[in-house]
């Protein structure tokens, strides 16, 4: 319970921080991968490419290896790997897979229109 509260606080804090960024269309992304599996590596490469191409300068990407932080899988409700979580801008989205379908990744990130 306490943890949850803290988490909420954290989220609220990061939300406040990101508020100005929200208007600027700032992206906060988290990619959860599982070590150096083909899918993980592919996902990371694909995502970096997409971000550079469409979100240059206005994104924060954090890459987390679940093997190193297994506790996070529960906290972030991860089941599939790789999973990309779009924390901001809202709405909250999960993009799973190796990001090879660029169209779908863009749809998930809602940046197609740009």
């Amino acid at each position: 319970m306490k943890k949850k509260k803290e988490e909420t606080k954290k989220t609220t804090a990061s939300f406040d921080e990101a508020m100005p960024g929200l208007h600027e269309g700032r992206y906060i992304l988290r990619l959860f991968i599982t070590g150096t599996t083909t899918k993980s590596v592919l996902a990371l490469t694909n995502l970096k490419k997409i971000c550079e191409e469409y979100l240059e300068g206005r994104y924060e990407l954090e890459v987390i290896d679940l093997y190193q932080n297994p506790g996070l899988a529960k906290d972030e409700q991860i089941i599939a790997a790789p999973t990309l979580i779009k924390k901001l801008p809202l709405p909250f989205r999960r993009i799973i897979g190796d990001m090879s379908d660029i169209e779908k990744v863009l749809m998930g990130l809602e940046i197609k229109k740009l």
């Binding site: 959860f32 599982t34 599996t37 899918k39 592919l42 996902a43 679940l66 093997y67 297994p70 506790g71 899988a73 529960k74 409700q77 991860i78 089941i79 599939a80 790997a81 790789p82 999973t83 709405p91 909250f92 989205r93 999960r94 993009i95 799973i96 897979g97 190796d98 990001m99 090879s100 379908d101 779908k104 990744v105 749809m107 998930g108």
Partner: peptide
């Protein structure tokens, strides 16, 4: 206890994936 919450509308499939996340979660628990 671990509650696995899956919201279909939040999820976008973009290629190959596995359920390693679930394995890690379960293994960790």
């Amino acid at each position: 206890l671990d509650h696995v919450h899956i919201e279909r509308s939040e999820i976008e499939e973009t290629g190959e994936y596995d359920l390693e996340g679930l394995f890690i979660r379960l293994g960790y628990a």
